[in-house]
Nucleic acid binder design. Structure first.
Lengths: 204, 204, 204, 204
DNA sequence: CATGAATGAGTTTTCATTCAT
DNA sequence: TATGAATGAAAACTCATTCAT
């Protein structure tokens, strides 16, 4: 029923399957999604999935990576001429934007992932690794800001960076529970409030 | 007389069962918890549970109320003589404390609750209602601070309150994923960073 | 759908189920027998079996015990006045008889059991334990025969007993492969040949 | 010329495949061996196997022949000058030796073969045919021994031969279940006991 | 002929729920 | 009302076999 697929074609199929699986997972959540359903939705046979993924968990892990990777590249790695205060605000805003664009099902799945993955040492490692990279960026900005004398020397870059991310995660969480995507205007207003909070970090 | 007494007794049993179920759910998570296990742990028969709850989900969601109610009473409703800036910090700190004391299983269950409940219109209502009450408190503080001229007039009490809670939720989320409870010292340091952020709200 | 069963009733049900399972296993062999089939044949639901046995393997082990136990009690433990030579012959004959009465499917299942069980340390222990008891009997007879001076002092009771049982197992194996049950006459003739072999053990 | 050559080549490939399959079956047993594994081990494609064998069972039963054939040639067909009593002992011993050298996995597979094959009329025929050849040898020896007046006239060559083989099969079975290969010394001791049993066949 | 991706019926097992007693 | 045996649909996963290329 099937010819030999090239390595490329197989990889393509795998991603196609993963993409379909992501759709189904997003619609039903991890536990409510059965392999049968994924198979049906993806136009595969039940057994066919197992040619690409060893188990439901394996498929899940693969998607975790995909999702996490999608969040990369959001940060602008090149430091600009603007004040660190402005740069922090800008980056923060970018991250908010990128999250706010995802639909609730997607966000909900990400949170389900986190909860589930945090119980599995292997997954948590992967998850945290991703976190570290993200935090590192804010830490770097905060450190430079302190060095330049722009920011209060009391600022603890590691902890502050952690709080920045908590604020983002918490806000996403908020959107999930409320089941509403923020409008452009709401984001702008949020931005203004963030600006106020950040002002507290400036050197007196 | 029998009916009334029996009604009481029934309610008592129901809460006893719910409390036991909470323990089990906390230990194993929603999906890993079977009705059999709950029955055994609670000293009920498997069928008996269904005299009190229509389904596993019903039982699970009933606990939402219990858990949410546990979070009440944390806020100190009496406004003190201190500056609003200080009061905000104090309240914020109280909330962090109260969450930091719960073990990871408990926190994880709460987040599982939120995710699950937010799909159920009835329960989302309950959830949001609870949120509103919590936000209201900060909103009131922020409003008074503005009125007194302590806080920057640009502060949007509703949005800022939302951010406060997001910061808390996000931080709890952080603790869950990292699987570590913050030490007293870590909380103190976090407190200092919050103080910095809050400074941004002061009238220039 | 079901009232509380007394401990007795439950045990009864379990044996009833086991008996039915034995029938099915005998008809189809271990690997060709599915739990579904057993359930259907026994008038149980698929899940119902698991109230009595933890797994297919558990059911299998239970039947092993039943079958092995059925072979007990064949040996006449009381030593008679007859010569040991006669007693050996008599006992040997009894064992042959008891095996020859079982139908081929039963015998085949026993051999399947042995093969399967010999790979599992736990089962093999149980199996060998049973073997030891059986061998002990012949060993005792042979030892007494030597003591009384009836048997050749070159007889090694342990090894000879082992050969006796091998002869029995081998003969059963023969019946299985040929797919024929020995007639009364065949058994009589076999008996005569065994008598000849045994004569070789007599003191010269 | 092509067809003939290809026919040869095909036969070669078939035996190569069968030989590899034997290795795999020996390592894992019939039910634990998958066609995929055989394919991989033999360097064939999964589909390719089906060019040579119609099914897993077909492949399995083809090996029966291979295995049975391996047992040929053990018997020394030339009758010596020694007494028939000695010749019987010698041959018996040779057979024991040849079996005792095989590892348990091999022996177990042979027994699995027998059990499985005995259900298949076609293969049982093949199996019995092989048995007959083996028995014939002992029958001939026993007959000559009787003719020469060396052996007791009560000896029934057919039945006695059957018992000889049962003893061998039974002993192999014993080795499988105990999971131990007999040492040289054990075989020697066994030989002595066989000598005693055989003495019973001598003319009084 | 050979390939190996795909099939899909089949496996064991779980568990929320029901209901005869 | 309470019990727990029984249900049966559904789950994840396997694997001998097929067939388009």
């Amino acid at each position: 029923m099937a010819p030999k697929l090239s390595e490329n074609k197989k990889e393509e199929n795998k991603e196609l399957l993963a993409a379909k699986a992501l759709q189904v997972f997003k619609s039903y959540g991890y536990h409510e999604t059965s392999m049968s359903l994924i198979a049906k939705e993806a136009g595969f046979s039940k057994g066919g999935i197992y040619a690409y993924f060893d188990s439901k968990e394996d498929l899940f892990l693969h998607m975790l990576k995909t999702i996490l990777d999608q969040k990369h590249g959001v940060l602008d790695e090149s430091f600009s001429e603007a004040t660190y205060y402005e740069q922090l605000l800008t980056q923060w805003s970018r991250i908010f934007m990128s999250w706010s664009e995802l639909d609730r099902n997607h966000l909900k799945l990400v949170f389900e992932f986190w909860l589930q993955a945090s119980d599995n040492p292997l997954y948590r490692e992967k998850l945290l690794e991703n976190y570290y990279v993200s935090e590192e960026y804010f830490i770097k900005l905060l450190n430079r800001g302190k060095e330049k004398g722009e920011l209060n020397s009391l600022v603890n870059p590691a902890l502050m960076s952690q709080l920045f991310w908590s604020l983002i995660d918490g806000q996403v969480h908020f959107w999930i529970v409320r089941d509403k995507q923020p409008s452009k205007q709401e984001l702008d207003e949020l931005y203004e409030q963030l600006r106020l909070l950040l002002k507290g970090l400036k050197k007196p």
